[in-house]
Amino acid sequence: MARFLRHFRHVMAENPVTAVAFALLGLIVFLALFGPWIAPYDPLATEATKTLRPPTWAHPFGTDHLGRDVFSRVIVATRLDLGIAISAVALSFAAGSALGCSAGFWGGWTDRIIGRLSDTIMAFPLFVLAMGIVSALGNSIENIVYATAIINLPFYARVARAETSVRRNAGYVAAARLCGASDTRILSTQVFPNILPPMMVQVSLNMGWAILNAAGLSFIGLGVRPPDAEWGIMVAEGATYIVSGEWWLALFPGAALMLAVFCFNLLGDGLRDLVDPLRRT
């Protein structure tokens, strides 16, 4: 553990951008965990006397058309958005690496079937596919998670397949065979840990997409329903007021969304360095 911390410190010191990204991630995770206790106001409490107030010290991000505090709503929404993104990415990471590893390792028909399957998914416009899945399965948060997981699955499967097929004939795989290890064991203990670094980059990039995707689905009215606080819905609700000059309704949740995506996009390289033993010395 001490070894890992030392390595963590080194990766941070080596690249300030990574340090910024990790700090941002820390903030986002903190808000997701403790948001409801930090938020100064109840995110759902309406106050008819204070509608559409511009930012003030009492309401740093202003209030919306029902008099709810935008600042509190942006903070509380972190948990929902991050939760959707993490569960979707975890699902597609698990299923995608299992499928991709088997395709890359065994090749032949396994490879062909899995390859065509992911090609089929990728042939659809992904957002439209996600919309279709959500409307077919029913309008709920779980289904947003499933839809996001399905449309991201081919990316993991492809990376895992390519990285596995490179390592399939490595010396250490043959050595593990000599130790009497079965194919599944070789895949899980020898090959899979070695494809983690490139997969981590994919995970981080995908987190950004997943957040955008979830927010996008909410924006068009699928998944999360009002009055729940969620960045996508808040932007959608605020969009109608931009024309009349109430810019803060859409800007602040939009900015939160952008920062989160930005953070995950920057995180990729740092995460890869963290899980790659070759970077340790």
Partner: peptide, 13 residues
């Protein structure tokens, strides 16, 4: 068996 490339035959992790 002892392999040709000592580097390639040891799992880097």
């Amino acid at each position: 068996m002892v392999f040709q490339d000592p580097h390639d035959s040891l799992n880097p992790r």
